[in-house]
Design a protein around this nucleic acid. Structure first.
Lengths: 215, 215
DNA sequence: CGGCTAATGTACGAACTGGTTCGTTAGTAG
DNA sequence: CTACTAACGAACCAGTTCGTACATTAGCCG
């Protein structure tokens, strides 16, 4: 039981300070949008000062881009971890769709950042070198599933992987992205646990039913 | 060919001034978000001055709420104009879905405002008396179609009108709401005319295929 | 045609906000 | 132990932004 100082006992720790700024900034940008986010507010919620944001990131915009990059990295990693070996095509696409649904409904901040970025016509996304060249593993995965489905004659063949990904994403994103307007107008919280489970099944059924329909 | 002064020759016209402010404000808010929109900019794009925005609307937030109300009124009216008499249930739901798709892809400003409003957790929507109590005609329409479909034994019965509306909306909203991030990441503009027609058909097929699947 | 009021324009100010300047200190290499 | 540098903090600044006070006038009503 020695009293060794824990790693973060260092008063000055570049890595930790940067990580803390990114964490707080992610919340702030997701919460208030790019224009609505306040650099001073981010600094205040950190153990450090505004000075360090400019020291490490250069400015509000560069910080926002880093936040975006980190958020997208999260979903890329989740996608790469998906394994559908041993599943028949219908089971495979359902599995992938429902994992996508789970990921989105569990990462509202990410969805909010994407919405915000679309309001800005993806101008920051375009500026990011990391994200521009990063591949999209999920497309390859879907391509493989679709190919198998067609070989076996169980899937239609007039829709490609990107289209199917869009179909899945649409239904996985909507309850999160439009939770509040939808909830207000229809008096029904789309993320209520029971409803969420129902939508999860709906999504799987929907994608499989669509793909099985003759073209 | 008399030289009668046209109606808008009046230098002072309350109705016209208010309408012009609302038009410009809609564009500005949809373009830059609530926090990003500038009252001075809205005024500058109008034939009148900032003074009048405060005179007629009271402030930035009330103006934004009016903009929201007008945008929602547009889609309400479109929904009320939908007529599916004479169509069998599958045809009817496909028709409605594709009209929804058309409306959304043609009204990007509305979709952007909805995204923005969700970032703000629908707090302005909640403040609007007009919108809070306004009904949602489309739900009744869908209810009727679903009921007929079930009577005829062609539709599953574990999904209600609001759920089906959400399914339709998801796929109709996504290409517009996420046009830029999706386009950037997958190198494919989801609103490209050819693609748009393909997605329109996909949506119809998808909803019908889903509803026909046994529960 | 006189006067009353809705409608309008100008100029300004207080608070906010992104970014910077200047100086300080913790940690470590030698 | 010393000296050097990466890491840091406080105060400040210039430009912006929502909102308002004050002055003015178009258009209508009797």
């Amino acid at each position: 039981m020695s009293d060794q100082p824990p790693k973060n006992s260092r008063l000055r720790d570049a890595v930790r300070t940067q990580a803390e700024i990114l964490d707080v900034a992610t919340r702030e940008f997701a919460e208030r949008g790019y224009a609505g986010a306040r650099v001073d507010e981010i600094a205040a919620l950190t153990r450090t000062t505004k000075r360090m944001i400019y020291y490490y990131f250069g400015g509000k915009e560069q910080l926002y881009i880093k936040v975006l990059e980190r958020a997208y990295t999260g979903i890329r990693e989740a996608e790469q971890a998906v394994d559908v070996t041993g599943l028949d095509p219908a089971e495979a696409i359902r599995h992938l769709a429902q994992l996508t649904f789970d990921h989105h409904t569990e990462h509202a901040d990410f969805i909010r950042l994407v919405s915000i970025e679309n309001i800005h016509r993806a101008e920051h996304l375009a500026k990011s070198e990391t994200l521009a060249k990063a591949g999209t593993p999920v497309i390859d995965l879907i391509s493989g599933i679709l190919a198998r489905g067609r070989e076996q004659g169980v899937f239609r063949d007039d829709t490609d992987a990107v289209d199917v990904h869009m179909m899945i994403s649409s239904f996985a994103v909507f309850p999160v992205a439009n939770q509040h307007t939808f909830g207000t107008l229809f008096g029904r919280d789309p993320l209520d646990p029971a409803r969420r489970a129902h939508y999860r099944r709906m999504l799987g059924d929907m994608v499989v039913a669509y793909l099985r329909t003759g073209s």
